[in-house]
Design a protein around this nucleic acid. Structure first.
Length: 170
DNA sequence: ACGATGATGAAC
DNA sequence: TTCATCATCGTA
């Protein structure tokens, strides 16, 4: 199980290293796993696509907590988005988990793994029922990772919308 | 290409 | 209190 120290690093590094790791969900003794294939980095308050760029609000408060905290928010009136908080406490940055090998799309992923507001603000771990594991057979440095602009962030302006902060395992 | 669908945050 | 917006998806 990946610990706090994995997430307490530069957000781009974490986003680049999460593909190939396993997202694990445990509910009532049942376990679901999915190999992460796609992530996006939201690198901090200076990043105009990042929720924390407009300061601390009730919604984004979990982003200001320690690395490894779960940040789940609701959007478009029907979808939950799963993020993992990165870097030091009070530096609000996170990685959006966009897809696993069996599921493409951040909203479909949360629906499949039954992730909603009840996990918001909790820490990754067995107690929470959501954590991330590495597979010793998979060497991240050998994976082919494609870098692309982030999706759905045109509102942030060209500079930030065009940053290649989306990581896809091909 | 567009409508669903409602929480969120900023303005008033 | 109102109102535009939204880190999306299914259907057409």
């Amino acid at each position: 199980m990946l610990s706090h120290s994995f997430f307490d690093r530069k957000t781009l590094t974490v986003a680049r290293e999460l593909p190939g790791k396993y997202l694990v969900r445990k509910i009532n003794g049942k376990i679901w796993r999915g190999k992460i294939t796609e992530t996006e980095a939201y690198v901090g308050p200076h990043d105009l696509a990042c929720h924390s760029s407009r300061g601390k609000t009730p919604r984004n408060t979990p982003m200001f907590a320690e690395a490894g905290t779960i940040y789940v928010y609701f959007t478009y009136g029907m979808h939950w988005m799963l993020n993992i908080v990165t870097e030091g406490k009070d530096f609000p940055a996170a990685v959006l988990i966009r897809g696993t090998e069996n599921i493409t799309g951040p909203a479909r992923l949360t629906k499949f793994f039954k992730i909603d507001k009840s996990l918001n603000g909790k820490k990754l771990g067995k107690k929470t029922g959501l954590w991330i594991e590495s597979d010793s057979k998979i060497e991240n440095s050998k994976l082919k990772i494609l870098r692309m602009p982030r999706v759905g962030v045109a509102y942030a302006g060209k500079i930030w919308a065009n940053k290649p902060y989306r990581f896809i395992q091909s």
